[in-house]
Design a protein around this nucleic acid. Structure first.
Length: 332
DNA sequence: CATCGATGTTGAG
DNA sequence: TCAACCTCGATGG
């Protein structure tokens, strides 16, 4: 799934295209009919992302909590204003919209996981994104509106100009403000939500107390928010840390280093939409990394391949039901 | 066409 | 530790 960076990107899209607008809500699939009826006709008043959870606030303190889980995704269609803090992967999108083609490139860059048309589980964009005329001149009046329903759509949120379809979420529920607060209180620190230093203290304190392997702690949303299976493997490699070491036995400066590294990787992930976890790539390596996901990582998805640093075969094993990739030589 | 796997979380035992 | 939840692209026959 979408690790933490994707959810922050989605939240920014909602802020940009839905905040302050009245929405028509429906559940074409039929599994969220009552909830959709509650939301229908309300105005979006707030958007929050914490870890992999996203919260949309509507009139009168009614909140929608969405967790995409492993397979969930949001598909956006219609006229989409792109948040200027979300750059396209290759940096074509500038701070302003003066050059409409740049913006169009960014949005139509829909084939990859950095797509602005579909954020979530990797899948081909199947909705056409139409830009407003003044930014692209590409507006297509033949476009069907609202867009046809394709596949299983749990929730459709529709403004006059923008459509967001939610498919395959693990959680899609209405909450009261108290329930939202309780949900967030159970989550570990998120570098984009919490004060960085406070987050570091919380994370370090919890890890330093646990007998659980550090490789499991990084995947526990109560310990730290937003890290998933890719970032886990990569953070541990970058720290040259053995995943099996109990949290409380990991040197404290290593734990702090992992937190600080996560702060940086998350920021890059949100800005680029890519889980780029390798540094200082030469131009050729950078080109490869952008073209192929497997060329973007030190160890993730590289079982049996030689470690990029020492040449030892990368190992894959199951840790807490998830595949864990690591270099037994570098990570001692 | 059937089966598998995937960037996740919860809760029961 | 493990099953349940949920969707769809990739893979193989």
């Amino acid at each position: 799934m979408p690790e933490g960076h994707s959810v922050h990107r989605i939240a920014r899209q909602f802020e940009r295209n839905f905040a302050g607008r009245v929405v028509a809500a429906s559940s074409p699939q039929g599994r969220f009919v009552e909830g959709a009826a509650e939301l229908d006709g309300r105005t979006v008043t707030n958007v929050r992302a914490v870890g992999k959870q996203m919260f949309l606030e509507f009139d009168d303190g009614l909140w929608l909590r969405v967790h995409l889980g492993m397979y969930g995704a949001w598909d956006f269609a219609g006229e989409i204003l792109v948040d200027p803090t979300i750059a396209s992967a290759n940096g074509r999108m500038g701070q302003t919209n003066q050059r409409g083609t740049d913006l169009a490139d960014a949005v139509f860059d829909a084939a990859g996981e950095n797509s602005l048309a579909s954020i979530g589980a990797p899948r081909k964009a199947r909705v056409h994104v139409r830009m407003s005329e003044q930014t692209t001149g590409l507006a297509d009046d033949d476009e069907e509106w609202p867009p046809p329903i394709v596949g299983q759509v749990r929730l459709r949120l529709l403004t006059e100009s923008t459509c967001a379809d939610l498919r395959g979420p693990t959680a899609c529920v209405l909450q009261t403000p108290d329930e939202v607060a309780a949900t967030i209180a159970e989550l570990g620190p998120d570098p984009l939500v919490d004060d960085i230093d406070e987050g570091e203290e919380r994370f370090t304190a919890v890890v330093g107390r646990k007998p659980t392997p550090i490789g499991q702690l990084l995947m526990d949303p109560k310990v730290v928010s937003g890290i998933g299976n890719v970032y886990r493997a990569e953070l541990l490699f970058r720290a040259r840390q053995n995943p099996h070491t109990p949290g409380r036995e990991v040197a404290q400066d290593v734990v702090r280093g992992i937190w600080r590294d996560w702060v940086g990787l998350l920021r890059i992930g949100v800005e680029t939409g890519q889980m780029m976890t390798m540094d200082n790539l030469d131009p050729e390596a950078y080109r490869r990394a952008m073209a192929h996901r497997d060329d973007r990582h030190w160890v993730y998805h590289r079982a049996g391949l030689p470690c990029r640093v020492c040449g030892t075969a990368i190992v894959v094993e199951e840790m807490a039901t998830r595949k864990l990739y690591w270099c037994p030589s570098c990570q001692r």
